[in-house]
Design a protein around this nucleic acid. Sequence first.
DNA 1: GAACTGAGACTGTTGAACAATCTGGTTGCC
DNA 2: GGCAACCAGATTGTTCAACAGTCTCAGTTC
Lengths: 230, 230
Amino acid sequence: MSTQNSAAAAGRPVLVTDVLRERIVEGDLPPGTPLRDVALSAELGVSRNTLREALRTLHDEGLVTQQLHKGTAVKTLSAEDVTDIYIARRTLELSAIDASPLAPEPLLDAMEAKVAAAELAVSAEAWDKVGTASLRFHQSLVALLCSARLDGFFRVTIAQLRLAFAVMADQGAFQAPWVARDREICDLVRGGRRADAAAALRLYLDDSERTVLDAVRANSRTTTAAKGKR
Amino acid sequence: MSTQNSAAAAGRPVLVTDVLRERIVEGDLPPGTPLRDVALSAELGVSRNTLREALRTLHDEGLVTQQLHKGTAVKTLSAEDVTDIYIARRTLELSAIDASPLAPEPLLDAMEAKVAAAELAVSAEAWDKVGTASLRFHQSLVALLCSARLDGFFRVTIAQLRLAFAVMADQGAFQAPWVARDREICDLVRGGRRADAAAALRLYLDDSERTVLDAVRANSRTTTAAKGKR
DNA sequence: GAACTGAGACTGTTGAACAATCTGGTTGCC
DNA sequence: GGCAACCAGATTGTTCAACAGTCTCAGTTC
C-alpha cells in the first residue's frame, strides 16, 4: 500500500520508461548524455534488468541510440532526422485536414481547446510551455484521422522532435507567432476551408522545418568543433 | 528500425525478437497463443531476462498483448484494429501516390520489381507467398515518401495485419486478382496518372478491408462460440 | 611520436532466488 | 446438490550477484 496505482496496472519497466522519457523530452537529459545502466538503476531504485527493458523501449521509440558494448545515449538528431520527421508531419497533418469533414465533433472541440491552451500559455508568457502546448494542438489535429496507431506514431515522432527543441536557444516571445498560425489553421479547419487550411499548414511546416534545421545544424557545428578542439 | 543492420552488431535480444516475430507473422504461432517465458527461453536457449526484453519489443510493435501477472499472448486482432490499420494504410499509401512525382527513380524501379515478384509467385501458384509479396509492393509504395520513420511504422502496421491473414482460410487462386490490381496501380503511378492511381488504390483498400473484416469477424465468432461451449 | 599493453570500467547475458498474483480444484458448509 | 471460501501449484514480475566480452585510456616501450 505504499504507492497507489491510480490508473491501470503498470509494471515497473513502463514506469521507469515514462520517467526517463519525460526527462529526455523535457531537456533534463540533453542529447548525447550517456545513460549508464548501473548508475541509473541505482538512482531510480530498480534493478539493472528492469532499467534495460526501459532503455530498449526508448530505443524502439527513437529517443536513444544503442551501440553494442558502447551503451545507450540520448539521441542527437541529425539534419536527415529532422527532414524525415517533417515528411511524416506533412503526411499525417495534411491527411488529417483532408479527413476533417468526417471527424466527430468532440475531436474538433478538443482541437480547439488545445489551441486555446497554447494561447493561454502565450498570454501568460510561459514560453517554456508554449512549444509543448503548440505540439499538443498538432497532435489533436492528427487525432481527427481516428486511428490510434497513427496517434501513437505521431506522439513518438513529436517526442523525437522535442530532442531538437531541447538544444534550441530559448526564443522567448518569438514563439508567439507560431501559436497565432495554429489558431489560423484551426479556424480554417473548423470553417471547412480545407484547401486554405492545407496551404497554411504547408507554409507553417516549411517555416518550422527551416527553423529546426538551422538549430540542429548550428548545434552540430558547435559540438563537432568542441570535439575537434579537444 | 530494429532489423536494419544485417551485417554485425546485433545483440541477442533483437535476434530473439526477430525469430519470434517471424513465427508470429508467419502464422506459426496463431493469435491467442500464450508465450510463456520460461518455456520459450529454454527453447530458444536464452535467459528469461533476454526473452523478456524481446517480448517487450513485440508488445511495443503491437504483435502481442501483455497483461500484468497474466503474461504475454499473440495478439488477436479486433474489428476496430482492422479499421484502424486500414485508416493508416489509406493515409500513407494515398500520400505516397501524391508524392510519387518527386520520388527518385530507383524507388519507382524497386516498386515495379515488387509487383513483378508478386506476379511471379502467382504464376508459380505459390499462394502462401502471394500475400506477403503483395504487401511488399505496398511497402515499396510507401517508400516513395522517403521517410525512414514512415517506412518503419508501415512495416509494423503490416506485420499486425498479417496476424489477421494467419487466421484467414487459405484462398488459393482467389488471391490472384489482388496482384492484378497491384499491377494496375503500379502502372498508373509510373504513368503519372495520380488521380486514377489514387482512385484504384482507394477501391482496392476498401475491398481488402472488407475481406479482412469478414475474416476477423468470422474468427471471433468461432472462438467465442468455442469458449462458450467449453 | 607511434604502437603495444594492461588495468579498470562498463556492457551483455546468465542463473537463481523470492514475492506477488493468477488458476483450478478441493474442502467445507448450507 | 450447489456455492463460497480456500488452498496449492504454476506463472509472472523483479531483484541480485556473478562472469565473460569489449571498450577506453593512460602508461610503457621502442
